[in-house]
């Protein structure tokens, strides 16, 4: 029996292989991408602006909450996924979308670890602290500042009260999911002289840990070690191999 295909089929396969390589070069800048091994850990990146109810202009890089929320539900439902790593490099964004993502991560039954890389600013702070254990790399920063709005305001007292309550939601979430107390967090939020265009504080790496916002300084290796340990603890003694 002849196992080889016809010359036309061989040409077609070669063309498809070439076009796949060209696609990879165009999309990813390289001809070969590393494939993750079958893993029980899911990685969820939150990059750029957190986009909520309004689509942001095209020059913004965004993470859309309608993309993340179904993924978080799928992570919870998939028995093969035993842990979640959240990679954060965000400048903040929509308050309600950010809080929604934070609450989803915090309410997962599986162990979660977050790593702040580059920046985890504004609404990135609640997302970072929503994980069971949070890491920040030494060079990453987190900006803590009050919530602002611009534009026409109709009903100033009511709007002020609404903004105040919205800020309280952020403060309460952060203080309930990290070791920073409310007084300290508000002190950082309203500090003067640290930011050029705003009041607030920009905390870098170890400072975030010292204030109790983040659990430890570390990167990918530390996060994976911690998550694997938490997955082991989560399984309990009955699922562990008896020596």
């Amino acid at each position: 029996m002849n196992m080889k295909g016809s010359p036309q089929e061989n040409d077609k396969q070669q063309d498809q292989s070439k076009s796949s390589i060209v696609d990879k070069i165009q999309q990813l800048g390289q001809s070969n991408v590393p494939q993750p091994a079958d893993s029980n850990i899911h990685v969820l990146p939150v990059i750029g602006q957190v986009e909520g109810h309004v689509q942001l202009p095209s020059q913004n890089k965004t993470t859309k909450y309608e993309h993340l929320i179904p993924q978080l539900i799928a992570i919870e439902q998939n028995p093969k996924i035993e842990g979640l790593v959240v990679l954060l490099n965000t400048v903040g964004g929509d308050v309600e979308a950010g809080l929604a993502i934070s609450e989803m991560i915090a309410s997962l039954s599986k162990p979660t670890v977050s790593i702040v890389l580059g920046g985890g600013h504004s609404i990135g702070v609640p997302i970072a602290v929503s994980a069971d254990y949070s890491f920040i790399v030494e060079t990453a920063t987190m900006t803590i500042h009050p919530i602002r709005m611009t534009g026409l305001v109709i009903g100033v007292p009511q709007t002020f009260e609404y903004m105040d309550k919205m800020q309280d939601r952020v403060v309460n979430f952060v203080t309930h999911h990290s070791d920073v107390d409310e007084e300290k967090f508000k002190e950082l939020m309203f500090a003067k002289g640290n930011l050029t265009r705003d009041i607030g504080t920009n905390v870098v790496g170890q400072q975030a840990v010292d204030h109790g916002l983040i659990d430890a300084v570390g990167g990918v290796k530390e996060a994976m070690e911690k998550l694997n340990q938490m997955i082991g603890d989560n399984k309990g003694p009955e699922n562990q191999v008896v020596q």
Binding site: Q49, V91, G93, D94, V95, S122, I123, T143, R148
Partner: peptide
Amino acid sequence: MILYTPLSEHDIFPR
């Protein structure tokens, strides 16, 4: 929608 970000509005929405 309220944006909570250190970026200025002009950085997000083009002039």
